[in-house]
Design a protein around this nucleic acid. Structure first.
Lengths: 257, 257
DNA sequence: CGTATACTTGAATTGAGTCAATAAGTGTGG
DNA sequence: CCACACTTATTGACTCAATTCAAGTATACG
């Protein structure tokens, strides 16, 4: 990995730290820390810029660092020996990255756009975790949420049609935009069609055809390749295989609790 | 859920607790606890028997409990409104179950065979976690491992052929047997073909045909439907898309570390 | 022992993949 | 600013792996 720029995140005494002023603080794991705790975290943090297509780490590398994305978009993927690729996730500002498995990264992390991350040496973070139980709890929560997302993705990859996969994907991008207080209907798609394909377990051609079908049904509009407007969320939700409120309620009822 | 039998796991004073004698203790999250800590855990534990086909909890239920499997086999699955099913995992003795997402179970847990679990009320466990940092760390580790497994499964579901999926599955069953100190070539498959299909994102017919192909290539033998003998692990590994040592090493090299 | 369930196998179908051509951007250097 | 090369996306024609439909066989169980 060749980082363009490194800056320590520790301020001079009397200054507020970068972390306190961080734009994604409230969205990230850092949200659970008070100012004093944030200083402790800042002390082991390096801020780091990356360029489009730059690889932050490779699958199989020793997982020496974990990251918190502060700007830009990153894709995570696994490869088969013959080059087939599965993107396991896209990460955006506020997301935590590199939650570790054994001592190796389980996937490659490659920048889509340029951006910045905060980097924490794993061994230092682990020491700090003992002092900051709130952070450890939050990491467990984060891992749990990612696990739930991974299971949703298994359902998508194992059982949904191409149309359903794309509709599901677009709605998940919209939900993320909502969490970040952004426009939920005019969406930015920084990743390529090929990336979307490798995320949804489809080819680029199938993605393209699925977009065209949604556009012709007037469920979406495509002002350019990196923007989608969701014009009929209800229709998209219906075709995504999303549970309706009724179904959810009835399944709760079936439990007998 | 209708449990057949409930037994408190707390022993009379002077007895050793169930937990200390537990057959899967060394394989489970409990392995990180000393005897005193184990008593604290035992105090909030209920042992519980379940029958084949019994549902422990449904997707969408409020996640009031977490479980540790002590005997038997359980499948976890998600359903689409039209009945399509994706099994997200099989759990066996020693496995932790119900690591929670928000306040709802993300999947249904249904028994394949009969067996037993230890049940912990979530709110009590969360209180206990503050006192047992080793347990919390272990849960984070567990969640991380599950996340890595989930990502492997995404690669399988998104990018592997039917043959590759089945070979991968058989090898993962073998690896589990190895971790448990069991025979790695003569494997028990407690789940049905239909379950395997729903786990691998395939139909029951495709599973059956894939088994037949492996059998005809003499990579496996099928003494009966619930047993497989792996007769050529190397061939299975080659067709599973598993990274060889060389490839792993070269990818590490490519990093430049 | 009989009946339901689970599994296997074959034939026909189909949704997504592959191959191929074209179009539309994107960036670079002259 | 434009021309060229290059990458990315779209669309069409054809193929194929896995699904669906349909028997038939084995297995489990009450």
């Amino acid at each position: 990995m060749t980082a363009n720029k490194l800056e320590p995140a520790v301020p001079k005494p009397g200054q507020i730290s970068r972390c306190q002023a961080c734009a994604v603080r409230s969205l990230s794991v850092c949200a659970v820390l008070d100012n004093r705790e944030l200083e402790q975290l800042a002390a082991i943090t390096t801020s780091l810029q990356y360029s489009p297509r730059e690889t932050l780490f490779y699958e199989g590398d020793t997982a020496d660092n974990v990251f918190n994305v502060t700007a830009g978009a990153i894709k995570l993927y696994k490869l088969l020996p013959d080059g087939r690729r599965q993107i396991t996730g896209f990460v955006f500002p506020g997301d935590f990255l590199g939650i570790a498995f054994h001592n190796r990264y389980a996937y490659t992390a490659e920048a889509i756009t340029g951006g910045t991350v905060c980097r924490f040496p794993r061994h230092k973070l682990e020491t700090l975790l003992s002092e900051l139980p709130a952070l450890e709890r939050r990491l467990l929560e984060t891992a749990s949420n990612e696990l739930a997302a991974a299971q949703d993705q298994m359902l998508l990859l194992g059982r949904k049609s191409a149309q359903e996969r794309l509709a599901t994907f677009l709605l998940s991008v919209s939900r993320r935009a909502q969490r970040h207080g952004r426009n939920t209907t005019m969406l930015e798609l920084p990743m390529s069609r090929s990336d979307i394909g490798d995320y949804l377990g489809l080819t680029i051609e199938t993605i393209s055809r699925a977009f065209t079908k949604l556009r012709k049904a007037d469920y979406i509009a495509l002002p350019d390749t990196h923007h989608v407007e969701l014009r009929d969320m209800t229709a998209l939700a219906a075709m995504s295989g999303l549970e309706t409120d009724e179904e959810y309620a009835s399944s709760a009822l079936a439990v007998g609790y």
